[in-house]
């Protein structure tokens, strides 16, 4: 009994001393850490907006967006700390957009893309393609930004993510009208519609049959994408869309561009 008590007591004393020690150290270091973190982020924002003096954080769907203001309190633009889907998992990056909806900067953070292949997204030629794009640009793979051959997943993922982030920023901070990629099916009259959108190599044409407020059939009228690879997209996407009765479906991996093309073409048809 005495032994047990002694053990408990010993542990208790050690624990108490340790706890005390830690709180003291924490008391010293915590403010330093916090100050520096704020300082650092402000510095980062200054990289995009040199005159920034103040920022506000807003959380939209789990991603942080920072509205930046100058010393006079004038709104300068937005920096989004966002993520894109790459080949090796998520690619974290910051995207800076000015108050007129132009991309003025992008910085790639942590990513796991293959060195020498997928990490082209962090090299100048790719960044140059992105910076300067406007909100009104399509920002679509193969239209105004080319994917890099050999790294289509990494670059394609970045491009479609940038479009998405632009939409979020435009809608929430700049008051822009965003074309929704979602169709209100109840408003689409029954009938057969034809739509066209860019696939991997060229346009994909689809025919969509709507009856009773539902998409009942989707047919690819023509496409020029790689046989073998695109077939997976075609086989995969059509049932997905019909089942979900929505265009918010996952892309077929390995054939992202064709998949996206099909979705866009269906959207064009029903718009």
């Amino acid at each position: 009994m005495r032994n047990a008590l002694r053990m408990a007591l010993t542990l208790l004393i050690i624990g108490a001393i340790c706890g005390g020690l830690l709180s003291v150290v924490n008391g010293i270091t915590a403010p330093i850490i916090k100050d520096r973190a704020d300082q650092q982020f402000l510095q980062a924002l200054e990289g995009f907006f040199p005159d920034v003096a103040k920022f506000e954080v807003q959380d939209i769907n789990g991603e942080e967006f920072y509205s930046c203001y100058d010393a006079a309190g004038k709104f300068m633009g937005v920096v989004g700390k966002v993520k894109a889907k790459g080949y090796g998992g998520d690619i974290a990056y910051d995207l800076a957009v000015n108050d007129t909806g132009d991309i003025i900067g992008m910085r790639i953070g942590a990513h796991n893309e293959t060195p020498g292949i997928g990490d082209v997204i962090n090299k100048d030629p790719f960044l140059q393609k992105i910076i300067g794009l406007k909100f009104t640009d399509p920002i679509s793979a193969g239209v105004d930004v080319d994917t890099t051959s050999g790294a289509t997943v990494s670059t394609g993922g970045m491009i479609s993510s940038i479009r998405r982030v632009m939409n979020v920023i435009g809608e929430n901070f700049l008051g822009m009208e965003v074309e929704k990629a979602e169709i209100d099916l109840t408003k689409v009259a029954d009938g057969t519609y034809t739509g066209k959108a860019r696939g991997f190599k060229s346009d994909i044409t689809v025919q969509v049959v709507v009856s009773g407020g539902k998409i009942t059939q989707i047919e690819i009228v023509s496409h020029d994408d790689t046989p073998g690879i695109s077939d997976n997209a075609i086989k995969g996407m059509i049932p997905k869309i019909i089942e979900a009765q929505s265009l918010e479906v996952d892309m077929v991996s390995g054939a992202t561009l064709t998949s996206q093309g099909i979705v866009n073409a269906v959207f064009e048809a029903l718009k």
């Binding site: 340790c18 020690l21 830690l22 150290v25 330093i32 850490i33 520096r36």
Partner: peptide, 14 residues
């Protein structure tokens, strides 16, 4: 653990 945490905090700060 105490020493580790101290190291962690100090490194983070400085």
């Amino acid at each position: 653990a105490t020493f580790v945490t101290i190291v962690d905090m100090v490194l983070n700060a400085f």
